[in-house]
Amino acid sequence: MSTTTTTLKEAIVNRRSIRKVKKNETITKERINEVVKTALHAPSSFNMQSSRIVVLMNAEHEKFWDIVKETLRPRVPEENFGATVERLQGFRDGAGTILFFENQETVKTMQENAPSYKEQFPFWSHQGNAMLQYAMWMSLTAEGIGASLQHYNPIIDEEVKRTWDIPAEWTLIAQMPFGEPNEEPGERTFLPFEDIVKFY
């Protein structure tokens, strides 16, 4: 366990979007493997476990962000593309990227096995993936590793599936670049507690 590991409360409070990350030799495949194992304890409806994860590190991670850049090039106005490249470079400079998928075959099987909930399983599937994303983000934060959640899908989906031989029934949900924090996050603002929470 890393010496930077914090309490659950500290991880929740300190979790932030770190969009500029960099490589660090202490962020190894073995260390990220342990983070992933921890995050996989996140719950899912009916214990359906429809989420799938692909971890890209080193050259594969850099290849992913090159794909994103080239996919965006014809879609972003030329005058804005420089800023887009700069943002993407903040992700590419990191140690790796976690790709979150949902296995639609699992969702379909659950719909067949529990037809009275058929309409709900796609929603529950995404909720489970969101909890996994959060568990992953919290686990990285507890390790002192910076991360953010990005959504360049669906425009990159076909190229990603082709490049890493991803099963056709997996749907890309989100991307989480990670690494040593290379920026100080801005201030967060919160709605008044009383507007969000009601006690009876």
Rank of each mutant, 00 (worst) to 15 (best):
T4Y: 12
T6P: 04
A11V: 10
I18H: 06
I27S: 03
T28W: 01
R31G: 02
R31S: 09
I32D: 00
I32L: 15
T38Y: 10
A39P: 13
L40I: 13
H41M: 10
A42Q: 08
P43T: 02
Q49L: 02
I53M: 13
E62N: 07
W65C: 05
D66Q: 14
L72N: 11
L72W: 00
L72T: 06
R73Y: 12
E78M: 05
E78Y: 03
E78V: 10
E86N: 12
Q89T: 14
G90Y: 03
F91W: 11
F91D: 02
I98V: 15
F100M: 15
E105F: 04
K108R: 14
K108N: 01
M110H: 05
S116H: 07
S116C: 01
K118L: 02
E119A: 13
P122Q: 04
S125M: 12
H126R: 06
Q127H: 11
M131L: 14
S139H: 13
S139E: 12
I145R: 08
S148C: 15
E158K: 14
K161R: 14
R162D: 08
T163L: 05
W164N: 11
D165L: 12
T171P: 00
M176Q: 13
G186V: 08
R188M: 11
D195R: 01
D195Y: 04
D195L: 03
K198L: 01
